[in-house]
């Protein structure tokens, strides 16, 4: 499973594919204060990213993958700051 949904946290594991976006979007609509754990994530399809951005989620754990983290930080931190 690419996304493990916990009580109030979605944990992204390995590669999160385009197929996950719909579920993620639904889940987040019900959990407006949910947090995301990207620690074990190695890549995510941009559709998922778009959901995260639109939901203005906060990232509980940033990816260990430095390259991924750098890319994501360029947009997720900006969004959060707003």
């Amino acid at each position: 499973m690419a996304i493990e949904y916990k009580k109030n946290q979605a944990v992204f594991v390995d590669v999160v594919s385009v197929d996950e976006a719909e579920t993620l979007l639904d889940w987040l609509q019900n959990k407006p204060n949910a947090k995301i754990d990207l620690g074990r994530c190695s890549h995510l399809h941009p559709s998922n990213l778009q959901v995260l951005l639109a939901a203005k989620v906060s990232i509980a754990v940033w990816p260990k993958d430095i390259n991924l983290r750098a890319w994501l930080e360029s947009i997720l931190t900006i969004t959060q700051a707003v």
Binding site: V18, A21, E22, L24, L25, L28, Q29, H43, L44, H45, P46, S47, N48, L49, Q50, V51, L53, A54, A55, K56, N67, L68, A70, W71, L72, S74, I75
Partner: peptide, 30 residues
Amino acid sequence: FFTARQTPESLWGQISAQEAWPPLAELDAY
């Protein structure tokens, strides 16, 4: 995103949104 991340000899990368995000309920994730 994957294509961008695989850019050869990439020193740095960034993502930006082309437009403002709609409310979550109206988002077309695809």
